[in-house]
Design a protein around this nucleic acid. Structure first.
Length: 137
DNA sequence: GCATTGACGAAGG
DNA sequence: CCCTTCGCCAATG
């Protein structure tokens, strides 16, 4: 989104995050959150993707851990980010504890038509959405 | 400035 | 097939 401001992530949420313009060597940090959020917002309803897939799509320059870490700030992003559609490589809802309630993530997914059992997405590979191959550049 | 942690993932045992 | 180790990069104590 052209109008997306780099402050889509509140500094208070990130902590000591400074203005990216003031950090020449780290100017990608702030935009990294935007990139992650942008990708996650493109995940179709009823589909899910993984942290690693997003990392790979954005370029192998950072690890999948940074994607998960970035998601921590997603709740403050605007427009909202459907964080429930991002699970780990096994389709497990590893980020459930970061929602309002531990069961909230599963509820959201089921409401979208994604079957979940035992904190894992059923038929994961079938509902998996790979940004690297699904997003047309 | 070093050690630990983290919504991860791949590799090795 | 389960568990441990390591790499990844930034934040935190």
């Amino acid at each position: 989104m052209h109008n997306m401001k780099r402050k889509s992530i509140k500094k208070s949420e990130i902590g000591t995050l400074k203005n990216d313009a003031d950090l020449p060597s780290k100017q990608n940090t702030a935009s990294f959150f935007e990139d992650v959020h942008s990708v996650v917002r493109q995940i179709p309803i009823g589909r899910v993707t993984s942290y690693g897939a997003i990392a790979q799509y954005l370029g192998t320059r950072m690890s999948a851990r940074m994607v998960g870490w970035a998601m921590n700030a997603s709740h403050a992003a605007n427009p909202p980010v459907p964080a429930q559609r991002v699970v780990n490589r096994n389709g497990m809802l590893t980020g459930k504890h970061h929602f309002s309630t531990p069961q909230r993530m599963e509820e959201l997914l089921k409401a979208e038509g994604v079957e979940v059992k035992d904190d894992t997405v059923i038929d994961f590979k079938n509902v998996f959405w790979n940004p690297s191959s699904e997003i047309a550049l």
